[in-house]
């Protein structure tokens, strides 16, 4: 047996999905209320994707996100009570964004930037999802960046033509932005479909997946944490 050379911070896509779910329900959704343990767990859940991203080499965005998270959390606890009026409102918005929404965005960013289509497919196959879902998901994940690239090119072209908000045809700005992007995407999408089908995608045979994914120490740790969080949540309901 080969020794496992995978760095410790690489985790199974299924565990990434767990982290996303925890973030979504407990940090963004605020389930569990004001329970002290839950408060601590929220910080832990927020910092898991940040830490993993940090080790994965995405230093700058991680540090920025961490600074904003901590700063606004401190503001929330200290300054917020004493503010009034407009400042109070602005602070409220910012706290909402940086303490509740940002951790979710970061865990989404973590998932998207560290998971390859083939790994996601492997994970979904291990979860025994049907091909009717796996194939469209794989295609979507593969194609979404292409569609965004097309959108970028259209954006460039609009800049060059001097078409912008507040131009001569404001009601058509949506049309200008969407129609060329969709047209180009449909054409590229057709090529992609043809190529994928000619390479045997969509056959009724059970697919194999060669991606070496599987649970390791860190994965088990996170799943235990997940179970514990749900347990704490249940106790708050009692």
């Amino acid at each position: 047996m080969e020794t496992d050379k995978t760095p410790f911070y690489i985790i199974d896509p299924r565990t990434k999905l767990l982290i996303l779910a925890l973030n979504s329900v407990f940090v963004f959704g605020g389930a569990g209320g004001a329970d002290t343990t839950m408060e601590i767990l929220r910080h832990v859940i927020t910092f898991i994707p940040l830490g993993l991203l940090f080790f994965g080499g995405k230093r700058k965005p991680v540090l920025l996100a961490a600074i904003f998270y901590v700063a606004f959390h401190v503001l929330q606890v200290t300054l917020f009570e004493h503010t009034k009026g407009v400042l109070n409102y602005i602070l409220l918005f910012s706290i909402g964004v940086f303490v509740r929404i940002l951790p979710n965005i970061m865990s989404g960013y973590y998932f998207i930037s560290t998971t390859r289509v083939s790994e996601l497919v492997g994970a979904m196959e291990k979860m025994h999802l049907t091909d009717k879902l796996i194939i469209p998901i794989a295609v979507m994940m593969r194609f979404f960046p292409v569609a965004m690239e097309e959108a970028g090119a259209v954006h460039d072209a609009m800049g060059m033509r001097g078409i912008r908000f507040g131009g001569r045809h404001p009601s058509k700005i949506l049309e200008y932005r969407l129609i060329p992007m969709i047209t180009c995407s449909v054409k590229t999408g057709e090529e992609l479909s043809a190529s994928a089908l000619a390479r045997g995608l969509g056959s009724p045979i059970k697919r194999t997946n060669i991606c070496s994914i599987g649970f390791r120490a860190l994965d088990y740790a996170f799943w235990i944490l997940g179970v514990f969080t749900v347990f704490v949540f249940i106790t708050t309901l009692l």
Binding site: S118, T188, L192, S195
Partner: peptide, 10 residues
């Protein structure tokens, strides 16, 4: 077209 021919990143 390399943009549409491949299915995987690696």
């Amino acid at each position: 077209n390399p943009k549409s021919q491949f299915f995987n990143q690696d």
